[in-house]
Amino acid sequence: MNVNSVEPREMTSADMADAALLRRTFGTFGTGVTVVTVGGRTPHGMTANSFTSVSLRPPLILFCIDRQAIMHRRIRLGFFGVSVLAAHQEGVARHFADLQRPLGAKQFDGIAYEPGRLIGAPLISGALARFECELWRTCDGGDHTIFIGRLLSLDWASDLSAREGLLFVQGRFRSLAPETGAPETGSA
């Protein structure tokens, strides 16, 4: 047996009830970091690392939100923005993850952003990519809801090869230096 291999083991009901164990184990999968925002009279933002692309035709993305989160109620209004954070934006990620931050427009004080041109949701300045979306579908996800959005607009940093993305893995923010060479454009 390879000493570096992981031995499969059946989860016990105690394991499934141990949120810390689940969080630590799920955290071995590194993710990018985004800020999801809604506009309107009471703008709101939250850090999310559950973001992923879903489809090219139609262009769809998804992320998951805890049913108890303020954003869970606000996102149901139908339109939202997503900003994919760059490595230098760890402070922005921490700010929007802080449950003690001010609510409403005050939570954007000191944060560089522009309102999206179509829906007006705040989009974080300096982000690697920014999306404006319309809520397309929701799905039950246990204690979270899976929100699927249809892209209405997008923009991205002009020189992505010179920029690093902000990553979250094993409970910590990290960055990964970009590779040299052209990015892949095909699918496997």
Rank of each mutant, 00 (worst) to 15 (best):
E114W: 08
R174L: 08
M11V: 08
G141L: 07
E7Q: 12
H88W: 03
G116L: 06
A69H: 13
F108Q: 09
D155T: 15
A177S: 15
S153M: 09
G116N: 01
F80S: 02
A86V: 05
L166T: 02
R57A: 12
P183D: 10
E132W: 13
M16E: 10
C133Q: 05
T12Q: 07
T180N: 10
G116A: 02
L152P: 00
N4S: 09
L22A: 08
R174D: 10
H144D: 06
S153I: 00
I146N: 03
T37I: 11
N4L: 12
P122W: 02
S125A: 15
T34P: 05
A177E: 15
G45R: 01
T42C: 05
T28Q: 11
D143Q: 05
A188S: 11
F26I: 10
H72G: 04
S83H: 04
A127I: 05
E134K: 11
P183H: 12
L166N: 08
D155E: 15
P178M: 00
S158A: 14
S125Y: 00
R117V: 05
V33M: 12
L118V: 07
L21E: 03
G45I: 05
A20R: 15
A97V: 11
N49V: 01
N49I: 08
A121H: 03
A112D: 14
N4D: 12
G27F: 04
E184Y: 13
E184G: 11
G39E: 08
C139M: 13
R76Y: 00
R74Q: 11
Q107H: 03
A17N: 11
I65Y: 01
F29G: 03
P183E: 13
R57M: 09
F63H: 14
T25R: 06
C139H: 14
R24A: 13
C133F: 07
V3T: 14
I119W: 02
A69D: 14
S13I: 02
L21I: 03
S5L: 12
N4Q: 09
S153E: 12
S13Y: 00
S153H: 15
S187T: 14
V33G: 12
F80K: 00
G141P: 08
E179L: 15
I119R: 03
M1P: 05
A14W: 01
G181Y: 05
A20E: 13
V3A: 14
K106G: 06
A105I: 06
A86N: 06
H95K: 10
G81E: 03
I146C: 10
G141I: 10
I61H: 00
M11I: 03
E164K: 14
A93G: 06
A188C: 09
P102M: 09
R76N: 06
W156S: 15
V3G: 02
E10Q: 12
L176Q: 15
G171M: 04
P59R: 10
